[in-house]
Design a protein around this nucleic acid. Structure first.
Lengths: 194, 194, 194, 194
DNA sequence: TATGAATGAGCCTTCATTCAT
DNA sequence: AATGAATGAAGGCTCATTCAT
């Protein structure tokens, strides 16, 4: 029997499935090990402790997530289009991977402060991507030059995050990706009449 | 010695402090009891179980929170002013109560799905307040009539929530309330130049 | 409102019902108090502690039980008839009082050694009645003069007790009293052919 | 150090000792674990819960008990001899194992209905052995053909059980095995003079 | 590398009993 | 005599982590 996939990724993938199916608190190390087809002890050859599995899940999955968004936005011509692409891909990637969406939006938040801070560190590059788009938009005079970039980034991220969380908690009953243009328009145009 | 404060609120307040100081997972029932100055068993005369303490904390504190915001916004003349007041008070109340902010933004999220759904139920009236302001703004022709109210409400709540969470995680190093006008302006005007 | 029944017996009767319905381990003092219509604390004006309630239940109920059997057997002419009457009444009284049968045969046995020894002390007079019948039978030459009275008493009591317990555990599906003549005959005649 | 004895039996034996010495209710799982020389958690690798330890104690010990009695009675020629052997061994085995006698006669009865029903299930084969002897005796015309086998079996079991319980509660002050012939005779001959 | 049996610290909850009123 | 709110000790069970093989 040949098993090329290194055990590391086997365990990561098992963790995503187990957490999505059982919830954070019912996801014992032994359950993840069983799903990955390894012994409990083997987990500790690849991860420092249980928390390290969780951080690594986020690191691996978000790494791809961010990288793909960064690549895709770079292919667009201006900041406004880049922002639209970012929103579409943010919604699209989580809508396409139901288990991952449950884990990132619901389960991973049930963790202690220390873990949450590590998660924030992992998210940093994503926030840098958003900041870049905003700064570029200002330079291109597409966006107002007086905007508070960090604050606006929080607004954008908070909006996307809240929207995805609501969608997950409503059990995917509507088309998430379809919301992208509207969200994009709200951010750029505001809600004032005229 | 006279102790008029009913034990129920004593325990609620003790829970806020203990959770803010120790984090959700290190907040044993016995620790909350000790802080409240009652016996462990007394907790169970007022709360069904540990989770019930947490739900009740949110219920009590958010109840006041929402009520005060609803009252204050009602005193303003138009939807735009109401929205500004809502943002100011949302930031203001959490900025004024550091422990409560830690609990609502960080600790209470470390709970299971069932508890989170109860929390959402408690938050419902707040979302209704936001929806009301948006609908009024449309009627007053202050806001565009084509806006998707539920989606925009998610955007607003997500923005406020993310902004407060960032502020808490940065250990209150800047003036949260001062951000209110900018956030209000972003929401109403958007970011597009002109 | 007039309530002539002293609270003592109210509590005893409540205890029998509560224990029969809920089982020994689910019969909290507060449940007995509620059934008796008194406050928890009132229990302790009449009983030293929870165990004392149980001992008293047995004392009161078995007191009547034994007294009635003693009286009835005394009215019969000879030891063999007295033995039959004792068996009939032992079966009859428990068959007539379902709750009491559950308590004496099943629930009261789930108690610690000390309580069981007190129960044995209460049962003593019953054993004396049996011994008396056996000795009388020997004197009347109805029973063999070489029988070991204490041992035989154990045999008789063990037989009756086991028979009633089986009947209770079978949920009273057959006629207990109808077994009395057969049991009486087995004890007096043995099982040997001829 | 070599320890071939599987932990399962180590725990069973420790449970018998601890329960005999401390009584059922004072036999904490941690006490049994300590006596067995294993960690508390190890108990739960071999037993579902505390009650499962008790059922298993009875299952293991009674299994041997019943098997040995079945084997020994089979070696006797007729039903009457078989009955005598059964009585001798019933008394003999419990007299030889003081701790086990305390557990079976006193402590194991302090359990809830569900456990008692499991105990009855385990005892079933023993009752089948008794029934077999009685039926054989009828066929051999040693016993009366009109006897009610289930009732008589209750009488026999009740007599033996009550006799052993009395002996245990009297702290083994007399020779239990010596009672066997008398009990046998009482059962077969009855108590009637001639 | 890999295993998985063994470990043992840690905590929520119950309920008999008390005592101020 | 009666109340019932308050007490606080006690223990079964889980599960992340280790380590001998």
């Amino acid at each position: 029997m040949k098993n090329n996939k290194p055990k590391y990724m086997l365990i990561i993938d098992a963790a995503v499935d187990v957490i999505a199916e059982n919830g954070y608190h019912a996801s014992q190390v032994s359950k993840i090990a069983k799903r990955a087809g390894v012994a409990d002890g083997t987990i500790y050859l690849y991860f420092k402790n249980k928390e390290d599995i969780l951080v690594s899940v986020f690191e691996e999955k978000m790494g791809q997530f961010i990288e793909q968004i960064a690549t895709a936005t770079n292919e667009r011509e201006n900041a406004s289009d880049k922002l639209l692409t970012l929103i579409e891909m943010h919604f699209g990637q989580l809508a396409a991977n139901h288990h991952l969406a449950i884990v990132t939006q619901l389960e991973l938040r049930q963790s202690n402060l220390e873990l949450r801070q590590q998660i924030n560190r992992i998210l940093k590059p994503y926030l840098v991507v958003i900041d870049g788009i905003l700064k570029e938009g200002i330079k291109e005079k597409l966006f107002r030059k007086d905007i508070n970039v960090p604050l606006l980034r929080q607004m954008i991220f908070g909006t996307l995050d809240e929207t995805v969380t609501n969608w997950v908690m409503n059990e995917d009953k509507y088309d998430l990706i379809g919301l992208a243009p509207t969200v994009h328009e709200l951010i750029t145009q505001g809600i004032s009449a005229k």
